[in-house]
C-alpha cells in the first residue's frame, strides 16, 4: 500500500472503527483511515456516500446535530478527539473548516478574517492583528483584490472571493488541519481554478482534507484519495493509483463513470 517513493509523512489523523448514526440510520460503517500531514487528501464518492459526514467527524462539527452519534476511535496526533477531556471548541480551532457554500459573516472583510484571532486571542495588539489578517489574506490569494476595501462588507464580494475569504478566515485561526467540504461546488470554473491552486499551495504547509464530487478535481489537487460508497471506505490509495489501478469493483465502476 505504500508505493509512494517519498519518505513517510506524519499521520495527522488515525481513525479506527469509526461508525456514525443519524438516529436509527447508519451513515458511516466501520471506517479505518490515516490522514497525513502536509498533504492534500481527497474524499470522493457518489452523493450520500457519507464523505461529508466523515469529514465533519474530524472536527466534531457533528456535535451540533442532536441526533448524530459517533463511535470508534479518531486520533489527532495520537490523542482521541472524542475523549471527554477534549474540548470540541479547542479542537475546531486546531482543525479549521471551509464549507460548501461560502458563508462570510455579515461583517467587514477585516472583521471576518480577524474573527478567529480575536476569539482565540492570537494577536496581542492591533499591529499583530493587522499583520495576521494581511498574511492570511495573502495566503488565500485575496490580499491584492481587497487590500483597499478591508472595511467593506464581506458579503459584497463575488462567490469565488467569498470562498477565498472563508479560507483566509480559517487560516487566520492558525489551524493545523484544514477541512474543506466541496469548497468549489458553488463557484464558477474560473473561481474554481483559483481556489484549486490555493488548495495545492496550502497542502505544503497544512494537512488539508477535501471532500469533492469532482473526480477531476481530486485528480488535480490531491496526493491521496479515499473512495466512499454507502458509508463505507472502499479504497484509499495515492490519487494516481485510485484513478489508474483501482482494485475494488465499485471503485472501478465509479472512476470509469459507470455510476455516481
Amino acid at each position: 500500500m505504500t508505493e509512494s517513493s517519498s519518505p513517510l509523512p506524519h499521520a495527522k489523523f488515525r481513525c479506527r472503527g469509526v461508525n456514525v448514526h443519524y438516529g436509527m440510520a447508519q451513515a458511516i460503517k466501520d471506517n479505518d483511515i490515516d490522514i497525513y500531514d502536509k498533504s492534500v487528501t481527497s474524499f470522493i464518492g457518489p452523493s450520500g456516500c457519507g464523505k461529508s459526514t466523515f469529514l465533519r467527524c474530524l472536527n466534531r462539527m457533528n456535535d451540533t446535530i442532536d441526533i448524530c452519534r459517533v463511535t470508534g476511535d479518531i486520533r489527532l496526533d495520537g490523542v482521541d478527539i472524542y475523549d471527554t477531556e477534549i474540548d470540541p471548541v479547542q479542537l475546531r480551532a486546531r482543525v479549521g473548516m471551509v464549507f460548501q457554500k461560502p458563508n462570510p459573516f455579515p461583517k467587514s472583510i477585516f472583521d471576518n478574517v480577524a474573527y478567529g484571532p480575536r476569539i482565540h486571542g492570537l494577536a496581542s495588539n492591533r499591529a499583530d492583528l493587522d499583520a495576521l489578517v494581511e498574511s492570511s489574506l495573502r495566503s488565500a490569494g485575496l490580499w491584492d483584490e481587497v487590500k483597499d476595501r478591508l472595511s467593506s462588507a464581506g458579503t459584497g464580494l463575488s462567490g469565488g472571493q467569498q470562498q477565498r475569504l472563508c479560507i483566509a478566515r480559517a487560516i487566520a485561526t492558525q489551524p493545523e488541519v484544514l477541512l474543506m467540504d466541496e469548497p468549489c461546488s458553488a463557484l464558477d470554473p474560473i473561481a474554481t481554478e483559483i481556489v484549486e491552486e490555493l488548495i495545492t499551495n496550502l497542502g505544503e504547509t497544512y494537512c488539508v482534507v477535501i471532500v469533492t464530487h469532482s473526480m477531476q478535481q481530486a485528480n488535480r489537487i490531491s496526493e491521496r484519495t479515499a473512495f466512499f460508497h454507502l458509508g463505507e471506505l472502499v479504497e484509499y490509495e495515492t490519487t494516481h493509483d485510485i484513478f489508474n489501478t483501482p482494485k475494488d469493483e465499485r471503485t472501478i465502476g465509479y472512476v470509469s463513470g459507470r455510476f455516481g
Binding site: H10, D37, G78, Q90, R94, E176
Partner: peptide, 9 residues
C-alpha cells in the same frame, strides 16, 4: 509518530 508541534491552541 513525529512529536506533535505545539500549536497556539
Amino acid at each position: 509518530t513525529m512529536p506533535p508541534a505545539v500549536s497556539v491552541h
